[in-house]
Nucleic acid binder design. Structure first.
Length: 504
RNA sequence: CGGGGAGUGGCGCAGCCUGGUUAGCGCGCUUGCCUUGGGAGCAAGAGGUCGUCGGUUCAAAUCCGACCUCCCCGACCA
C-alpha cells in the first residue's frame, strides 16, 4: 500500500453482524460494553475489527493487515522524527551469544527469566547457546567496540526496527506478547552530559509523538530504581492513563552511563588524547502503542482511531437507492478524487452486498474517523452528509467544499480526541497526603495518585503489596525544586513528588 | 507458576450429567430473485476427523487420563 492510499485489502474480510438495529440503540452490539468487562471488550475489539488474531502458540499473535497498517503509520511518523534528530537506521542480528548477554551482571539478571534460547542448529548441538534477543544492548555493544576508536567517531546515533522475544508468563494482545515489534535506538557519546541530553531529548520526542500523532496525553519522568531497565543508570519513561484507570508505560529512554561500554570495552581516545569509555543511551517504543490507542480512545461501539494513524481516514458510503449507480456513484467517485488530491486516505465503499446501514456500523466499529454519506437527495442538492466518529455528530456540506473542509475536519477530530483524553487524565489524577486517602482513591477512583515519597524502597514495596499500585514516574522538574512534606506511606520527610498507579 | 472458567462448521451457542442410527440451532458464507437514508426479505445450497493424543467400551462430542490454547483473579515482569 502506498503511504497515503488505501489498499483494497484493508477492507473487512470477514464480517459478522449479529444484531438488529433500532434507531436509538447502540449499533455495534457484538462488542461487550467497556463498562461491563474491560478486558473482554479489549480482546473482542481486536478480533472483530481484525487488528490481530491469536496464533496457535501461547502468547503469540498475528498482526492482521488493518492492525499492521496502523503500525506502519506509527513507524513512518516515528522514523521521520528519529531521522530528523540525526539518527540513522541499521540492523543487528536476531541471535546473541550467551556470553555477551552475561557480561553486564544486572542486565543478565533482569532478563534471564524471559530469554528464549537456541541450543540446536539443524541437527548439531551448539557449543554456545544463542539468546533470541530480548533487547540488543549486548550485540550492539560488541559491534560498537569494533567501530569506535576516536572522539571523531562520536556521537554514534543508530536506530533499528526489529522484532524482540521475551518469554512472558501473562500475555495480552499488543500490550504484552512473547514476540513484539519495536524500534530501539542505541547511541554513544563523549560525555555523561551529552548522553543525558540525548536521553531527555528522546523522552521529549516520544511525548510529543504520542500526543501529536496518537492523541494520547502522557506524563514524562524518571523511573525509580525498582522500575529501572536492567543495566541502565537511569530510566525515563512516558506513561499514559488508559480509560479503565490503569497506567500504561508507552516508551522508555535510558541513560546507560558506562555500564555497557565498560564490559564491552567500547573506548575512544578523547580530545585530550586520553582513553575513555563511551557514554551510552538506549530507547524504544513498541507495538504496545497500538494497544494504547485501543484503550485510550475506544468506546462501546468499537475503535476510535486518531486520523493521523487511521488506515482509512474517510469512508464514503453511497446510498443505494433507485438509479444510484447512474447518479450517486459518479458523485461519490468525484468526491473520492477530490479527497485523494487533498491528501486524505479515503475509501469509497461500493460493495453491493451490504446495505448502507450495515456499512455505517462496520466502519464505526473499525474506528474510521469520518464518514461521508452521499445519496440521491444529496446529489440533487449538491451536498453530502458528514458524520464524525468521535462525537457522532452529523453535518451537511456542499460537495465542492469537501477538498477544503475535510482535512481541517480531520485535524479537528484529532484535536478533540486528544482533548477528551486529556480531560479524562486530568479528572483521574488525584492528590493524596495520607495513606488512608491514598488507598481510598485507588479503591474508589483509580487513575494517577500524586503523592510525596521518602525515596525508600521499603515504602515502595509496602504500597505495592497492599494496593497493587507502583510508582510510575518521578516528574522531571522535582530535581530542581526540592519538596517539603511527609511521605504518604511512612510519614518521614519526603524526597520527591511521584505519580502512583496500578499499571499494565 | 498457583486458583477458577472454557474449547462442538467462520462467529455465538445447544447436545455431555444418564454413551447408541444421520451432531442440531441462530448469524455469517455461496447461488438466484428482490431490496438498500442506521446492520433488509424470500428460496435453494455448501461447510464438522466435536482442541490434540491416549485409555475404557460391542459402541465415545458424551466416561477417564495427559497435553495444547484462550479468558478471569493472583505471583512474576526493562
Amino acid at each position: 500500500m502506498t503511504k497515503e492510499g488505501v489498499d483494497d485489502r484493508m477492507i473487512p474480510q470477514i464480517s459478522t453482524p449479529e444484531c438488529i438495529v433500532s434507531k436509538d440503540e447502540r449499533l455495534v452490539k457484538q462488542i461487550t460494553p467497556k463498562t461491563e468487562d474491560f478486558s473482554r471488550w479489549y480482546v473482542e475489539i481486536i478480533q472483530k475489527t481484525e487488528l490481530a488474531d491469536y496464533a496457535p502458540m501461547k502468547g503469540m499473535m498475528v498482526i492482521r493487515p488493518y492492525g499492521y497498517a496502523i503500525w506502519e503509520h506509527i513507524q513512518r511518523l516515528m522514523d521521520q522524527r528519529i531521522k530528523a534528530a540525526g539518527h540513522v537506521n541499521a540492523y543487528f542480528p536476531l541471535f546473541i551469544p550467551e556470553s555477551f548477554l552475561q557480561k553486564e551482571a544486572e542486565h543478565v539478571e533482569g532478563f534471564s527469566p524471559q530469554v528464549a534460547w537456541v541450543t540446536v542448529g539443524g541437527k548439531e548441538e551448539l557449543e554456545e547457546r544463542l539468546a533470541v534477543r530480548p533487547t540488543s544492548e549486548a550485540i550492539i555493544g560488541h559491534m560498537y567496540s569494533k567501530w569506535i576508536k576516536s572522539w571523531r567517531d562520536l556521537p554514534v546515533l543508530i536506530n533499528q526496527w526489529a522484532n524482540i522475544v521475551r518469554w512472558e508468563k501473562v500475555t495480552r494482545p499488543f500490550l504484552r506478547t512473547t514476540e513484539f515489534l519495536w524500534q530501539e535506538g542505541h547511541t554513544c557519546h563523549e560525555t555523561y552530559e551529552e548522553a543525558q541530553k540525548e536521553t531527555l531529548l528522546i523522552l521529549a520526542m516520544y511525548k510529543e509523538f504520542v500526543e501529536t500523532e496518537l492523541a494520547i496525553p502522557v506524563l514524562a519522568g524518571r523511573k525509580t530504581w525498582r522500575e529501572k531497565f536492567a543495566g541502565a543508570q537511569e530510566t525515563y519513561a512516558i506513561e499514559g492513563l488508559m480509560s479503565d484507570g490503569k497506567a500504561l508505560q508507552m516508551g522508555t529512554s535510558h541513560n546507560l552511563g558506562q555500564h555497557f561500554s565498560k564490559v564491552f570495552d567500547i573506548r575512544f581516545e578523547d580530545r585530550g588524547q586520553k582513553l575513555q569509555y563511551v557514554w551510552q543511551t538506549s530507547w524504544g517504543v513498541s507495538t504496545r502503542l497500538v494497544g494504547a490507542l485501543i484503550m485510550s480512545h475506544g468506546d462501546d461501539s468499537g475503535l476510535r482511531l486518531p486520523p493521523h494513524v487511521a488506515p482509512i481516514q474517510v469512508v464514503i458510503v453511497p446510498i443505494s437507492l433507485g438509479n444510484w449507480k447512474e447518479t450517486v456513484i459518479p458523485a461519490a467517485l468525484a468526491a473520492e478524487e477530490i479527497l485523494k488530491k487533498a491528501g486524505v486516505r479515503v475509501y469509497l465503499d461500493t460493495r453491493e452486498e451490504f446495505t448502507p446501514g450495515w456499512k455505517f456500523a462496520e466502519h464505526e466499529m473499525r474506528g474510521v474517523p469520518l464518514r461521508i454519506e452521499i445519496g440521491p437527495r444529496d446529489v440533487k442538492s449538491g451536498q453530502a452528509v458528514l458524520v464524525r466518529r468521535d462525537t457522532m455528530k452529523r453535518e451537511t456540506l456542499p460537495l465542492d467544499a469537501l477538498g477544503a473542509k475535510v482535512p481541517a475536519l480531520l485535524e479537528d477530530i484529532q484535536a478533540s480526541l486528544y482533548q477528551e483524553a486529556f480531560t479524562f487524565q486530568a479528572q483521574n489524577t488525584h492528590e493524596a497526603r495520607t495513606y488512608d486517602e491514598f488507598k481510598d482513591i485507588l479503591d474508589t477512583k483509580r487513575g494517577f495518585v500524586k503523592s510525596l515519597w521518602c525515596g525508600g524502597e521499603a515504602c515502595e514495596d509496602k504500597i505495592k503489596d497492599e494496593t497493587m499500585a507502583t510508582i510510575r514516574l518521578i516528574p522531571l522538574e522535582i530535581k530542581d525544586k526540592p519538596v517539603h512534606g511527609a511521605c504518604v506511606c511512612c510519614g518521614k520527610e519526603a524526597k520527591a513528588l511521584v505519580y502512583f498507579a496500578r499499571a499494565y
